[in-house]
Amino acid sequence: MAEVIIDRERCKGCLLCASFCPKQLFTLSDKFNSSGYYPVEIKEMEKCSGCAVCATVCPDVAITAVDR
């Protein structure tokens, strides 16, 4: 199973990952991080293909690893 690791402290909730993910897996958390941003999260990780599109487009390198 693929896994995407999101560093919620680095994420600025810009939603680029969400808009490019072919499986539309990202949603915004309802708790903000210490910078005041609502980071993204993935609830259905089992649907992830591990394509790493999200990590490639993340400008804050907040997606710190993708395993497949």
């Binding site: 402290e9 680095r10 600025k12 909730g13 810009c14 939603l15 680029l16 910078s35 941003y37 591990g50 790493a52 990590a55 490639t56 400008p59 804050d60 390198v61 997606i63 710190t64 690893a65 993708v66 395993d67 497949r68």
Partner: peptide
């Protein structure tokens, strides 16, 4: 298998750039 990893050459800092800035 790890297919993506944050480069070690990036320091452990949060970029000051605006959200979504490329």
């Amino acid at each position: 298998m790890r297919v993506f990893e944050r480069p070690k050459m990036l320091k452990d800092k949060v970029f000051h750039y605006c959200p979504g800035c490329t």
